[in-house]
């Protein structure tokens, strides 16, 4: 049995690990910068080499913050979906939020020129991608939600999510058949996911929506805990199911939609982080799980990003590949070791 005291210890430990990962993440990269210089730059001092200063403050620092936002945000939205649908396989990716975002982006990148010529070219900016991804993910989630009220079977909802994935792939292949090499490449690169390339301004906007999402997720903690009993019990406890469900879905689409919009479809994190957290904290209480998922998501994303940098080489691997390559074995190992699938 775990007492609250043990939780406090774990939280302190995780926070320390997070800070460590943050510094390690910033000190690693294709250009090797000595650790004391990194520290100097972060504390406001001048580095020996001015370009180091630039690399750290305008590239690595926003990237590290993005990693924290992406990891924690996707982890939280995965947790919300798993509890709402009472299915350990749920996550933003499985339920088609990411597919929706991809479809939105594909339509803007590849469809714009087909449909509207010059106007289309004008549309392709960072912001139009962000907006398209947000709208796409929200619409898909809404559809899944409406369907979920009709079919009671949660497995059916997952299959519907997968179907949306198939529809997206189909539409994207039709679009790519008609689009140019450059457009195709732009779409594929978006699909790799990327934590870099965000300016401080973009980061600020992402952070704003993300904060709103996190705030809403904190507000839905009580509802989430009640939903652990199942919907009928939750109803008998006076929970307004429709309102709570809407709140949880809006929260998820804000978090996952925004993150996918700015950083591309990041696979795996949303599904795995809640499981890793449950295995470590051995609880289903969202008052513990939510902050734990936040910390672990951020830590795992920072580690993945550090690996993706291939330290001291000029190559950067797609973050999407790393999250799965690194994360999937971790989940398998945890499940094999503990033997018990906790949910």
């Amino acid at each position: 049995m775990l007492h609250n005291k043990t939780y406090t210890k774990s939280f302190i430990a995780l926070t320390i690990v997070l800070v460590l990962c943050f510094f390690v993440n910033i000190s690693l990269g294709s250009v090797s910068i000595p650790f004391n210089e990194v520290f100097k730059s972060l504390t406001g001092g001048l580095t020996a080499n001015p370009s180091w200063q630039y690399i750290i403050q305008d590239y690595r620092l926003p990237k590290a913050f993005t990693a924290i936002i992406v990891g924690s945000g996707l982890g939280i939205s995965g947790l919300l979906m798993q509890t709402l649908f009472r299915n350990p396989l749920a996550g933003p990716f499985v339920l088609g939020i990411t597919s929706g975002a991809s479809l939105g982006v594909a339509l803007v990148i590849m469809g714009a020129s087909i449909f509207s010529g010059i106007l289309g070219m004008f549309l392709i900016s960072k912001w139009s991608l962000v907006i398209a991804a947000s709208i796409g993910s929200f619409l898909v989630l809404l559809t899944v939600l409406i369907v979920s009220t009709r079919v009671r079977d949660t497995m059916a909802i997952l299959i519907i999510g997968l179907m949306f994935g198939s529809i997206t792939t189909a539409v994207v292949s039709v679009l790519s058949y008609f689009s140019s090499m450059e457009q195709l490449q732009q779409y594929i690169f978006w699909g790799f996911g990327s934590l870099g390339n965000l300016s401080w301004q973009e980061l600020a906007i992402m952070f704003l929506i993300y904060s709103l999402g996190v705030l809403l997720s904190v507000l839905s903690v009580k509802a989430l805990n009640t939903l652990l009993l199942g919907e009928n019990y939750a109803k008998s406890l006076g929970l307004n199911i429709k309102k709570s469900r809407l709140l949880i879905i809006i929260t998820t689409s804000l978090l996952a939609g925004t993150i996918t919009a700015f950083a591309g479809p990041i696979a795996f994190i949303g599904l795995a982080v809640p499981h890793i957290t449950r295995q470590i904290f051995i609880t289903s209480n969202h008052k513990i799980l939510l902050p734990a998922v936040f910390l672990l998501g951020a830590i795992i994303m920072l580690i993945c990003d550090s690996i993706a940098q291939l330290p001291s080489t000029d190559y950067t691997l797609p973050i999407n590949a790393i999250t799965s390559l690194f994360g999937a074995p971790v989940v398998i190992w945890l499940l094999v070791r503990k033997r018990k699938m906790l949910f």
Partner: peptide, 17 residues
């Protein structure tokens, strides 16, 4: 919810409680 409580046949969603 303050005057009536239920015990249903369906299992609770999370057995991890």
């Amino acid at each position: 919810a303050k005057v009536m409580s239920l015990v249903l046949t369906e299992p609770i969603a999370s057995k991890n409680l």
